[in-house]
Every structure is written in C-alpha cells, then in structure tokens.
Design a protein around this nucleic acid. Sequence first.
DNA 1: TATCTGTTATAGCTCATCTATATCAGATAG
DNA 2: CTATCTGATATAGATGAGCTATAACAGATA
Lengths: 136, 136
Amino acid sequence: MLLTLDLDSEVPIYQQIRDRVVEAIADGELTEGSALPSTRQLAADLAINFHTANKAYDLLRQEGIIRINRKSGAVVRRDPGSGPPAPGYADDWQGRLRTLLAEATVHGVPGEELIQRCGGVLTSFHDQRTTKEPSV
Amino acid sequence: MLLTLDLDSEVPIYQQIRDRVVEAIADGELTEGSALPSTRQLAADLAINFHTANKAYDLLRQEGIIRINRKSGAVVRRDPGSGPPAPGYADDWQGRLRTLLAEATVHGVPGEELIQRCGGVLTSFHDQRTTKEPSV
DNA sequence: TATCTGTTATAGCTCATCTATATCAGATAG
DNA sequence: CTATCTGATATAGATGAGCTATAACAGATA
C-alpha cells in the first residue's frame, strides 16, 4: 500500500492516514488479516513523527478497523466481508452523507450526476476486490 | 429556519452552522434571495459569541453560498437552481465522497443499501422543494 | 440622535496537532 | 545472553484552531 500525504492540507496527518487505510480496505487492497507497517516504520517512511503515526493507528483501533498486538503488530480486523455494521452506525453515517450531498446539490450538481458518482465509486471498490480475488 | 447546535460535538460550532444552512438550502427551506439573521441576532439566539457566528457566515461567503451586504445583511446567493458548479468542484467533491463511502463499506454496509440511502437523501431534498414550490 | 448593521482589531483561554526525547516491557534474531 | 525490533507510555514544548470578551469604527435607518 502506497501512502501519500498532503502536508499542506487542512486535514490532520493522522486523519489522512486513517482515510487512506480505510479506502485501501474498501478497495480490497487490504483484507482481514493484512499486516500494516509498524508505527515507527510508517513514521519513518512518511517522514513524520512516531506519535502521529501512533495516533492514526489508535483512531483505526477505536473504530474497530484494525487490531494491535505487541506480537503481530497492526492487523486489519474489519473488511467489507466481516459482517454487518454496529447497530445505529448506518443512521449516523447517513447524517454525514446528508451534509455532503446537500453541499453538492447547493453548488448545482444535478441529482442524477450525484447518484452516478456514488455508483461509480462503489463499483470501483467492487471491481478492485473482484480483480484481486477472482471468482473460483 | 430552526437551528440546533450540539455543543458536545467535535464538529466546530461555525461548521455546524454552515452545514445546517447548506442543508436548509438543499431542502428548499432557503432559496436564492432568502435573508439570514444578522450575525449578532444569530449569536444571541444560539447563545454563542458574535465572532463565531461571523466565522460561519464568512465560510459560507467564501464558498459562494451567501452574499453579505452592509445594507441587506446576509442573503442566500446559491441554491440548486443557480447554475452549474464551478469547474473542478465535482471531482474534488467526489474525493470526499469516496472516503465516506469507503468507511461505510468497511463497516459492512452493503453497496445496495448505500445507494438506496443516497437516493433517499436526494429524494428528500427534491420532495421538500416541490412541496414548497408546487408545479404550476 | 439613537440604534441597527457589518467590519476590524486585540487579547486571552483552552484544546488539538505535531514534534522531540525518554523509558519500559515483551518478542525475536544474532 | 545481547542487541534490536516491537508497542505502550510519559513528559514537554511549539504552533495554531476554536471560542470568547471587549472595543471601536462606519454606513444605513428609524
């Protein structure tokens, strides 16, 4: 997994790391059991402080997305096939979706285009996964 | 427009105000030309500092969503019918959409449900608008 | 004139973000 | 056993974001 950061972004570094990992799992690039680099290794690769990488992993752990052992390091715990979401998650998520869709709507993006883009993104997730794991 | 804040949220107050205004415009509750309360009035209603309300309006102005005159106060400048989005906007937006969809996917929400929720939210926008402005 | 508006400036507080060191313990390779 | 990797934890400092508190100024309006 190649991880590029935008140090000029308003989005905190640890948040960017978290987002990229989540997207990589959705893409199928990482699956349940995949090992992530150690916090020190990741920090060295990204030329950031060790604690910032640590915070990113801590965030992913709090979300239940990765698991951290002293022995095996950071390992992916959830992927799209790991089971249904926690109760209430989807509704919370929809609240954030609503804000995002409202913004695009106000800026004049047609509803049909928004649906198309949603579908396109989801298809890209699915395509990536079926590419990595061809149907037996 | 009734505006409720969550002071315990991690989302900054000025961001919450901005989000609620954007959603109200998408809903059709506010349309191009609608007047918003003055910053001092809004701050008093929400029991927050005047500068925080000011920052929210400043953010909306930077996004081109409202217009601020000393004379007429804050007025909605953009609504879903104000024309096409700025070039490059939709692509930027899709990047944020991708992160949001990836998160839900990783948490196990099926793609079909995500599409349904997107459509549902967009329909709620449209319904609200047609309710306020019934077809002649 | 009194009062509303937006605009701007300054200052202070709290907390988030990021970095810099340092230490400790368990696991592992030599 | 020793050296070295790992995660976990503590402390401290720098910088900036977020929010509040006053204050002052200018234009519009009643």
